Amino acid sequence: MASMQRILIVEDERDIADLIGFNLERAGYQILKAHDGIHGTSLAIHEQPDLVILDLMLPGKDGFSVFKELRRDARTRDTPVIMLTARAQTEDRIQGLEAGADDYLTKPFSPKELLLRVQAILKRSNAAPGSVVVEHGPFRFNKNDLKFYLDGEPVDLTGTEFKLLLYMTERPGAPQDRNDLLRSVWGYSDDVHSRTLDTHMKRLRQKLGPHAEMIETVRGVGYRVVTN
């Protein structure tokens, strides 16, 4: 239930933090706030919220530094993060997604859009598993603990990477349309966010190493996981 889920807002502009907090509280979430990077890092690690909304331009410690520290700590390694920033340039969005953020939203933004993205991320993070274990060639997924193994060795995937690769693996050989992937994994689909998908595919291929070719680009359609 949303009422049991806690969201940490790390945002130095108090009016923006209050606006986000107001809308999320109205939707039934519990809210924590920090207004600088140092406090935000400490609060995230000790309170272990269900999701973090992280501004990048923060006093004390910038958002990218906060994010890297959260990913290094076992207590927050898998905590979903939405990066929020006034930086609208494509390279900033790509840098955030390549770092492993689950989503990225630029200011000014619609509180309704932010809420929809929060709901989509928390829904997929808490989705009840069907078959617990999925295997395909060198891939092995454990849905109970969201662990992924490649040739029997654990590979550290973010929650979004896990969901994306699992979605395609459960449909081996079938080309998956870009828009379908965006809707199924991120909860929304439009041309603006197609780069989000490409960035995650690039990260997945890097992590798959010698098996990177198992993710195949289908020109004009999207991607697929190849069969052996």
Results as ranks from 00 to 15, higher is better:
Ser3Ile: 13
Gln5Arg: 13
Leu8Ala: 04
Ile9Phe: 02
Glu11Tyr: 00
Phe22Pro: 10
Leu24Ala: 06
Gln30Glu: 13
Ile38Val: 14
Gly40Asp: 07
Ser42Phe: 15
Leu43Ala: 11
Ile45Arg: 13
Gln48Asp: 10
Leu51Lys: 05
Val52Glu: 01
Val52Thr: 01
Leu58Ile: 02
Phe64Val: 02
Ser65Gly: 11
Val66Arg: 00
Val66Thr: 06
Glu69Cys: 05
Asp73Val: 02
Thr76Asp: 00
Ile82Gly: 05
Met83Glu: 01
Leu84Ser: 06
Arg87Gly: 08
Gln89Pro: 04
Gln89Trp: 09
Glu91Asp: 06
Gly96Trp: 03
Tyr104Leu: 03
Ser110Pro: 00
Lys112Gln: 13
Val118Phe: 05
Leu122Pro: 08
Asn126Gln: 11
Ala127Thr: 13
Pro129Asp: 04
Val133Asp: 12
Arg140Leu: 09
Lys147Ile: 15
Tyr149Leu: 13
Leu150Thr: 05
Asp151Cys: 07
Gly152Val: 12
Gly152Lys: 05
Gly152His: 10
Pro154Glu: 02
Val155Cys: 04
Leu157Ile: 01
Leu164Thr: 08
Leu166Glu: 04
Leu166Asn: 05
Thr169Cys: 08
Pro175Gly: 07
Gln176Cys: 04
Trp186Lys: 10
Tyr188Thr: 12
Arg195Val: 15
Thr199Val: 05
His200Val: 12
His200Arg: 13
Gln206Gly: 13
Leu208Val: 06
Gly209Ser: 12
Pro210Leu: 10
Ala212Pro: 10
Ala212Trp: 10
Met214Trp: 15
Glu216Gly: 08
Gly222Ile: 04
Thr227Cys: 12
Asn228Cys: 09
